[in-house]
Write a protein that binds this DNA or RNA. Structure first.
Lengths: 206, 206
DNA sequence: GACAACATACCAACTGGTTGGTAATGCTCA
DNA sequence: TGAGCATTACCAACCAGTTGGTATGTTGTC
């Protein structure tokens, strides 16, 4: 109980604050000062833990990706026996995540940052892609298993469909932000679910 | 030959430059100074035509939306007789636009800006949504006609599917930016085309 | 007493925006 | 037609505030 502080505290707090503030205001608009202020830490502490603001951004992508991995690993759908049920369960889980929360809470740090920095900071861009690709690959595993069982002869590509699930989700967030309405994101993700169902339903008919 | 300048020149040039630079570097990272420099105009001229940087952003969304409307109005697919052919033609046209160009050239100003400013500037957010919604509504017209002819009893909503086409395209751009590879956007849009085909193919079977 | 984890104080560069002015154009009415 | 005037289009210099980043402490712990 004694060591509540002193441990790598500021670092984790700064990362968590970055995840939150960047999703709210964007990367450039999130100043180092506001980041420090929001966690009650000085600039010296910030630059003690991160060489630069961009390094914080890259660390935040890893922080984000790890947290997401844990969240999805714990989810119920993993326990379904049929991989197609798992896949649909994954989409439903994403619907669930959207429903409960506000826009800045449920949108993706990586998608937000990469739109802003893809041309001006290759390092941040690559870090964002790594996170997205990592998650997409997890989804692709379910897709591959579902395909092997239910649609072995289908012509579509497994990795490509995995990336597509993420594209739809990212696009759903863009439109939801524009309309300032989370439910729009849910509507879009429902189309994704129908697409997957049609893809497998169609295969079974052949 | 004498009046090379003087016409409402600076304003249009600033708008065109904004469309380009914002897509490259993002909104916040595009400074008024760099905008002025890139078109060879002073700051005084900028603030003569626009009350603020945010007003420029809103004017740019209208400029963008009008240009896009013209581009799509001229496209060949409009001449197809069957509205379903038109719809597929629209998707193919978007594929075509992606194929020929670099990422900052082919991506959407509205989607880029709204990700950055949706929380911090409601005015910009609304202007972006208006542009997206306007374009989505045009697509929805084709969808409605195609549905009336080929899938009158289908359960899906016309406006919703129109928005979905835009969500997929926006998401495709996000992923393409992350991978720094335009062809990925094309892959995603191909999934959209397959979805539409499945939607109508499925309806015909009933 | 060495080293990590912070705090304090500061800086040069850049930010959006304002100032007061000038040159060219359009509009009015004799 | 054209003189007189108002409006528009634009410019150069400047401002206060903010930016990311640094140099130099102080403190607690092994």
């Amino acid at each position: 109980m004694t060591q509540t502080q002193t441990r790598p505290n500021a670092r984790e707090k700064l990362l968590a604050a970055a995840v939150q503030l960047v999703r709210e205001k964007g990367y450039d608009a999130t100043s180092v000062d506001s980041l420090c202020e929001s966690v009650g830490v000085t600039k010296g502490a910030f630059f003690h833990h991160f060489k630069s603001k961009d390094e914080l951004a890259i660390a935040a992508t890893q922080f984000w990706t790890e947290n997401a991995a844990q969240l999805f690993a714990k989810a119920e759908y993993n326990r379904f026996e049929d991989p197609l049920d798992q896949l649909i369960g994954y989409v439903d889980f994403r619907l669930q995540l959207v429903h409960g929360s506000t826009l800045p809470e449920c949108t993706c740090l990586l998608g937000t940052m990469v739109q802003e920095k893809f041309e001006t900071s290759p390092a941040i861009r690559d870090a964002c892609y790594e996170g997205i690709h990592f998650h997409a690959a997890e989804v692709s595993k379910m897709i591959a298993a579902a395909k092997a069982r239910h649609a072995p002869h289908a012509s579509w590509n497994v990795e490509n469909l995995g990336l597509y699930t993420q594209a739809v989700i990212q696009g759903a967030f863009v439109l939801a932000k524009a309309k300032n309405d989370v439910t729009l994101a849910a509507d879009m993700i429902l189309h994704l679910r129908r697409y997957i169902e049609l893809l497998f339903h169609h295969a079974k008919e052949d």
